[in-house]
Write a protein that binds this DNA or RNA. Structure first.
Lengths: 133, 133
DNA sequence: CTAGAATCTGACGTCAGTGTCAGCTTCAAC
DNA sequence: GTTGAAGCTGACACTGACGTCAGATTCTAG
């Protein structure tokens, strides 16, 4: 059995995830993404790196900082071992933060809907006036 | 009738909204918040500025950029007049963006919930093992 | 009128996540 | 072995939404 199937180079991982090469290196530097190296220090990634990067993108897009993500990843990687009460607390806080953000976005979307309805109505009025005039 | 009831100074507006003085000046610079000036160039705000700032905060927190907000504000301020097809398009795009972000956040929150459940379970196991050992 | 608080403008600092460039090395193909 | 693509490190640039500081001015209380 092979130890790990580290095949992918950074360019391919970038192409397959949409994350820039620069970002992938940054994630590694922040401890969010591991790689093995060839003799010449080129990075090699296993297939699982694709999902990992997708996860990272989701968390980044949700507004988590790299530091927060780094605090959560041990739970993803080794749920049975490294779980501390502090880590749990971080997860709960982030959950609450995300919930609050969802609420804010829902409110804002409702607000936009009201504006959209009004604006659309006014546009129709204008068009009606133009046709009538 | 008075033209406009511009009473508040920037410090009070800051105190009443939670936005820093610096932020309020920044909003003005970006065209998001208007003020009249005293002879000595001190800013004066009407009561309505409080709500305006709250709105701005919500939009910023929802991830809109100042540029995007600037594009939307005409709809808020003069729904009947300045509504262009372009503005409508901006609003629709932002609505879609916000919806997508809500979806992403819901997914992420679900993911966190799974992790939380697993982690909590493991903690209980650990405690059980400790008590048993 | 004067002290002191508040405000003004302008400029530079910060922070995170990336873009970008330079200069060098390694890899894959021929 | 040579060459061109791809990778490497390191450093500086940028954007956005501010913080912060300096130095001058204005408002308000006594």
């Amino acid at each position: 059995m092979s130890e790990v199937d580290a095949k992918m180079r950074i360019g391919e991982l970038s192409a397959r995830t949409g994350a820039s090469v620069r970002s992938l290196r940054y994630y590694e530097q922040r401890g969010l993404l591991a790689s093995v190296r060839t003799a010449g220090a080129h990075r090699l990634y296993p297939e699982t790196a694709v999902d990992r990067v997708h996860l990272l993108r989701r968390l980044f897009d949700a507004g988590l900082s790299s530091e927060t993500i780094a605090a959560l990843l041990p739970c993803v990687d080794a749920p049975a071992e490294e779980v501390t009460v502090q880590t749990l607390e971080v997860m709960r806080r982030e959950r609450e933060r995300i919930s609050a953000q969802i609420e804010a976005l829902l409110t804002t979307r409702d607000h936009l809907d009201v504006l959209l309805a009004a604006a659309t109505g006014h546009l129709h009025e204008q068009r009606g006036a133009a046709l009538a005039g």
